[in-house]
Write a protein that binds this DNA or RNA. Structure first.
Length: 312
RNA sequence: GGUCCGAUGGGCGAGUGGCUUAACCAACGGUCUGCAAAACCGUCUACAGCGGUUCGAAUCCGCUUCGGACCU
């Protein structure tokens, strides 16, 4: 389809984005909004995509799944390669279909990078080349981070100036792109937001910190009651997979290894979930397009969305 | 009543005269373009109180307060 040259952007519908820290009531809110706006739901949660992780990633319940059509929930295997770039293209394709039938679609989940990919797009960079990445990992092991940082300095001085030189992940990704494309990483970062053919309204859920932490702690206890231990055990032999580098599973794996007791594992899951929630809030705070609401304040949220729609 | 031990930042816990902001955990703030529930960074200068010794005390001495153990 050719890009429109008319003055007005023709938007096909509105994507209502619900974000917020883990345990803040996003899923339930999304279902209520889905019912109100007659909208399907797509997940923006980087771990709820996978089958077999229903308990530990707090996938929507059977009732929630029945109450609204959900996409990107348990629709692939933990072995499947997936990342924010693939998510962007798959999600856009899906939205194209959904907006044929719906004026509204709800996107809910806590993965900031995936939300960003969906709303603002990713630059056209190559995704991970397994061979190159493996090689970089080995070099990190053998030569140390300093060596990789030095190579990055030579290949991409501009990025070198502003990267976090303590962060192996960032260094390796930048190098990976330099090596695969033969051009500096920073040169290929346009920094421009993609334009989408739908409107976007961003809502974030918030609540007092002590209440949030209490909810997180209690939810972990519930996960244990619901069978998280068994769920993790079933994945134990796949523990090396990226999809299982996930709060709730890593700690259980350590417990299965005998490194920590069950009690310790549970406490660590709580702690790491709280840490995760904090990082999420940092991410969403930075994105000033978000409007923050108590997840229970449905009236205000709907009013806010209605007002936004009128503006568009 | 007596003897002895102890008292360190939110927690734990080193440090026995002069570089320790100890470390670690929690908490708080932040970074973020294909592993993102990942990876990484920053902040929180305490030594029970009072007096003394000393050029200098968390570290030595005395008293006080509080805790613990033991004895009669």
């Amino acid at each position: 389809m050719a890009t429109t040259t008319t003055m007005m952007n023709i938007k096909r519908g509105t994507l209502i984005v619900i974000a917020g820290p883990t345990g803040s009531g996003k899923s339930a809110l999304a279902v209520r909004l889905a019912q109100h706006f007659c909208a399907p739901i797509i997940s923006t949660d980087s771990r709820q995509f996978y089958r077999g992780l229903a308990i530990g990633t707090a996938q929507p319940t059977a009732e929630e799944l029945a109450a609204a059509k959900h996409y990107f929930i348990a629709d692939r295997n933990v072995e499947d390669d997936f990342n924010s770039g693939k998510y962007e293209s798959e999600a856009l394709l899906l939205l194209d279909e959904l907006f044929k039938e719906n004026r509204f679609v709800i996107a809910v989940g806590g993965s900031g990078l995936y939300i960003q990919a969906l709303c603002d797009g990713m630059d056209n960079l190559p995704e991970a080349d397994q061979e190159v990445r493996q090689n970089l990992k080995e070099r990190l092991q053998n030569e140390g981070l300093a060596s990789l940082v030095e190579e990055l300095r030579q290949r991409d001085p501009e990025y070198y100036d502003r990267v976090d030189k303590n962060n192996p992940s960032r260094i390796m990704r930048a190098l990976e792109v330099c090596i695969v494309t033969g051009r500096p990483y920073s040169e290929q970062r346009s920094g421009e937001k993609a334009t989408r053919n739908f409107n976007i309204v961003k809502i974030a859920t918030d609540m007092p910190r002590d209440i949030l932490y209490d909810r997180i702690n209690r939810r972990v206890d519930m996960m244990i009651e619901d069978g998280l231990i068994e769920e993790a055990r079933a994945m134990y032999h796949k523990r090396h997979l990226n999809s299982l580098q996930t709060v709730g599973y890593r700690e259980m794996f350590d417990h299965f290894d005998g490194k920590i007791t069950l009690e310790e594992a549970i406490d660590l899951i709580k702690r790491n979930s709280r840490h995760y929630a904090k990082r999420q809030m940092t991410w969403f705070r930075r994105d000033t397009e978000f409007s923050w609401f108590s997840p229970n304040d449905i009236e205000a949220i709907i009013a806010h969305i209605d007002a936004k729609i009128l503006q568009n």
